[in-house]
């Protein structure tokens, strides 16, 4: 809990330290995608079910919020509540389908479900305006300035991270991690494995929905791209890069991906290629996440300098870490 507090204080000081609006906007994006990654981490990292269709939840929430607040003229709070509710409901429905299976089949089904929702956003032009997407008008009130938006995103993301931290230490959170590591033992012990996965999945959809609202408020525009496999995959990449099932991993991963994307966009429009290469790099070189991976690689380097024989031992340890993760 304490590191989270320190992080929030540091993040709250950001607007004073960053040299300009542009950097603040990037910090805001990190928070938005960070929250999205937190939602993926809840189901993938803590419950062991990797979803490749989570962008659907971000997208449904974003579209619902935009359509209700602009199209139907609902007040912000009502549109927000409705978007969160609708997305959780979708999650509850998708969960019934996807959780008939687990492992790779779960991953494939969530991917297919995500693409189906993407297809709707793309093809159902009457509702979604198709490829052209939907825009929100210029903001008013506190959101007029980047700083106000930043603090709003910070409050929501930090709140959700606090919720996840409390959850993962609770009995239910322990049960989720037990289901991830030993599903068979868990049911023998009297836990309803399916129900635990289901609750995690729906909660994760709810968090993704919250990130969808922040996404809308930040970018003020949504198109089918927000629901694409690329966005779902980026979230999984963020979580793995930061470390599966860790508190701050998703935020770290989000910072990495958002920064790289912004830096890369100055030099090349080959982002998908770069994304693919980062995927391969993380998976092959530092599968346990960037920080532990860097620590291991440094250790191996040192060991090579001191005594070449230790490398094997380090590699064994790394593969054990990876093995425990699987």
């Amino acid at each position: 809990m304490k590191p989270l507090l320190v992080l929030v204080v540091a993040a709250a000081a950001m607007p004073l330290l960053l040299p300009g609006e542009f950097y603040l906007a990037i910090a805001t994006q990190v928070l938005v995608y960070g929250l999205f990654a937190v939602s993926v981490n809840l189901i993938a990292g803590y419950c062991g079910m990797v979803s490749l269709g989570h962008a659907a939840f971000l997208g449904i929430s974003g579209y619902a919020f935009a359509l209700l607040s602009v199209g139907a003229g609902w007040p912000i709070w009502a549109a927000t509540t409705a978007a969160l509710g609708l997305t959780s409901l979708t999650g509850a429905m998708f969960g019934l389908v996807a959780l008939r299976t687990s492992g790779l089949s779960f991953l494939m089904i969530t991917l297919a479900l995500g693409q189906i929702v993407w297809g709707i956003a793309f093809r159902y032009v009457d509702l979604t305006n198709g490829e052209n997407g939907i825009s929100l008008p210029r903001p008013d009130g506190v959101l007029l300035h980047g700083t106000g938006l930043y603090y709003l995103c910070l409050a929501v993301t930090a709140g959700c991270m606090l919720f996840v931290t409390v959850l993962t230490r609770s009995p239910l959170g322990a049960a989720m991690q037990g289901v991830r590591d030993q599903p068979r033992r868990m049911s023998t012990l009297g836990y309803d494995v399916w129900a635990i996965r289901y609750v995690s999945y729906v909660l994760s959809a709810l968090l993704a929905a919250a990130s969808g609202i922040l996404y809308m408020l930040t970018f003020r525009f949504i198109s089918p791209h927000a629901l694409s496999l690329t966005v779902s995959s980026e979230a999984v990449l963020m979580v793995i890069a930061g470390g599966l099932g860790t508190t701050f991993g998703p935020l770290l991963g989000a910072a990495l991906v958002v920064l790289l994307k912004n830096v890369a966009s100055a030099y090349t429009d080959r982002w998908p290629t770069l994304l693919g290469l980062i995927f391969l790099f993380i998976i092959v070189v530092v599968p346990e996440g960037l920080l532990p991976g860097a620590r291991r690689l440094l250790g191996a380097l040192k060991a090579r300098v001191v005594a070449p024989d230790n490398i094997g031992a380090n590699l064994t340890r790394a593969s054990r870490i990876e093995g425990a993760r699987q």
Binding site: V166, L167, S170, P171, A175, M186, L189, G190
Partner: peptide, 16 residues
């Protein structure tokens, strides 16, 4: 973990 499995507490989402 085994004790919690047979306790209604297993659904509690808070309290370390």
């Amino acid at each position: 973990m085994a004790l919690l499995g047979s306790s209604p507490k297993r659904w509690k989402p808070f309290g370390a």
